[in-house]
């Protein structure tokens, strides 16, 4: 099996952009888990909602696409926040398994609501012409989206890192992830911080959704299921609860998946299984995930 350097670079570009998308979606899982110890199974469906909102925003409103690309994720962020208020907040004092089941229910609800409202037939994502161009760099032709996606992802990650590391809200999030009660003793508004967490996670998922739509321009109400599952795996591989870990997991998964197909084309049918196999291997070798820390406490 021979692969030219050009081909290899194309695959790399493709893998990096897919990894970026996985990373953006995985962050939502890991942030919510970090604070609520909840696997938000509806996160993949929030991602789906984000792409549909963008679709409708571009098709049915006169708003320019680049503004829709910001408005739709913001709206999706609000939907994520509402989801938390309706499906999770009333169960704050309940056992975790109850909330988990509520999350699974919310996921089914959103998918079926999607079929009802958006229709079950696939829709074509209205990609702006400028993003459909293909660049030719030294014999390597790379779709412009494969440049745009990692760049946008890096910008979003820098912004997120700033919020989490430097702002009071970010400090409150980190405090909340360790100790609710003491956080409330600092006067932190717990529900407010949880809402912000859901907003950010859903916003990033919708950003990922838009770029997903540009890369794979087919919208379906069930489109969130598999990416959702894979990004959950990415978050676990990286060490759930750890944001850097989620990003790392996303890139490992995205690159791994594309390179597997590139080097072993006969295994293409197993590309989805790859994620699960990787998950099992990593959990066997390092049960806390790559960057997950053991929980130790000084008494």
């Amino acid at each position: 099996m021979n692969m030219s350097i050009q081909e290899f670079l194309q695959h790399m570009a493709n893998g990096i952009s897919l990894g970026s998308l996985y990373a953006l979606i995985a962050i939502g899982y890991t942030m919510v888990y970090g604070i609520l110890r909840l696997i938000n199974f509806a996160h993949g469906d929030i991602f789906m909602l984000g792409t549909y909102l963008t679709f409708y925003g571009i098709i049915f409103t006169p708003i320019p696409w680049y503004i829709v690309f910001i408005l739709a994720p913001a709206l999706t962020g609000l939907l994520g926040l509402v989801l938390e208020r309706l499906a999770y907040k009333p169960l704050r004092e309940s056992p975790r398994i109850t909330v988990l089941i509520s999350a699974i229910g919310a996921s089914f609800l959103l998918q079926n609501l999607g079929i009802l409202v958006f229709g079950g037939r696939p829709k074509a994502f209205p990609t702006p012409a400028i993003l459909e161009k293909v660049l030719n760099v030294g014999g390597v032709s790379i779709a412009i989206v494969n440049f745009v996606i990692p760049i946008v992802t890096v910008i979003l990650l820098i912004g997120l890192n700033y919020v989490i590391q430097k702002t009071k809200t970010g400090m409150a999030m980190r405090a909340l992830s360790k100790d609710y009660e003491t956080a409330s003793l600092m006067g932190i508004n717990i529900n407010g911080i949880i809402s912000i967490t859901f907003f950010i996670g859903s916003f990033l998922a919708a950003m990922g959704g838009i770029m997903w739509g540009v890369k794979y321009p087919q919208l379906m109400p069930h489109m969130g299921v598999l990416p959702g599952l894979k990004c959950f795996i990415a978050a676990v591989i990286g060490g759930i609860g750890n944001i850097t870990g989620a990003v790392l997991g996303g890139f490992i998964l995205g690159l791994g998946e594309i390179l597997l197909i590139a080097f072993l084309p006969t295994l293409t049918g197993y590309r989805d299984a790859f994620a699960f196999i990787l998950l099992i291997v990593i959990l066997l070798l390092k049960p806390t995930g790559l960057m997950g820390e053991k929980i130790t406490e000084k008494v």
Binding site: M171, A172, K178, E181, I188
Partner: peptide
């Protein structure tokens, strides 16, 4: 609180900043 309950994952300074959260 009893048992100190400092935010172990935050720096000393950040712990103090959170004290002044309100």
């Amino acid at each position: 609180p009893e048992g100190r309950r400092v935010f172990a994952n935050l720096t000393v300074e950040e712990n103090l900043i959170l004290g002044a959260y309100t």
